[in-house]
């Protein structure tokens, strides 16, 4: 529940924006980054629908690499659930 995922900003409308990661789009609130300059194309760390930090493109890519490893490891264990 405490793990935030990096997403890329697609549209911005006040505090509301649409972010995308791995082809999935989500409505995200920029309320907590209201004093940062967030532009289309930027990467943000998103947790339960709120952007909590701006991150670099590199940082976003690195984090996704980690998630892919974790997901692949979980998939390989068929009786997880």
């Amino acid at each position: 529940m405490c793990l935030a995922v990096p997403m890329q900003v697609r549209t911005v409308d006040g505090f509301n924006c649409v972010c995308e990661a791995r082809g999935i789009e989500r409505e995200v609130s920029l309320f907590m980054l209201q004093n940062e300059n967030i532009e289309i194309g930027d990467h943000v760390l998103v947790h339960v629908g709120y952007a909590i930090q701006k991150v670099s493109e590199e940082q976003a890519a690195d984090t996704w690499q980690l998630f892919d490893e974790v997901l692949a490891a979980e998939d390989s264990i068929h009786d997880v659930r």
Partner: peptide, 16 residues
């Protein structure tokens, strides 16, 4: 329910 990372967005929802 949740730790600070999750509770802060709940607080933001109320503050908004």
């Amino acid at each position: 329910a949740g730790f600070e990372t999750t509770t802060a967005p709940v607080a933001a929802m109320l503050a908004e």
